[in-house]
Amino acid sequence: MEKLDIDIRVPNQTRYLGLIGRVGEDVAHTLRGYRGDREELAYHVNLVLTEAITNAIRHANEDDPDKEIRVSISVDRGRLIIRVFDQGAGFDFKDRSSPEFRSLDEHGRGVYIIRSLMDSVEYRQTDSGHVLEMIKDLN
């Protein structure tokens, strides 16, 4: 599978969610040699990007319009690596309980969705904030 690197910076606003989601879908559609369900992969990439960026905008960057979000989407050695960088003090990214126990909560499904759809998820500090790294094995 080819090597690919896309780097995007957008203002800290939810109106850019659709734009980045579409870029993610296009990456899934463009991948060479992917044998799985491409439409499903596209939807999942769009979804984890949307969830991760929403968390970064609302919780880490606290809706501050002067901050920005950086997103990198890479394909390397059969792995899809998505990183969402925030400029904040971070947010609580704990593994939540199964949705069975909180079926009528209005919030808290985003982290569960990301963990369900990606093979590896890590949230760590950087020089200027935090990064959420999400990896999916494409083989």
């Binding site: 989601g21 969830e51 929403t54």
Partner: peptide
């Protein structure tokens, strides 16, 4: 065509 956890949350809010 696309719904995220916030969209689901809005529907749960309406349901409740």
């Amino acid at each position: 065509r696309f719904v995220d956890s916030s969209g689901l949350g809005a529907l749960v809010s309406g349901f409740k």
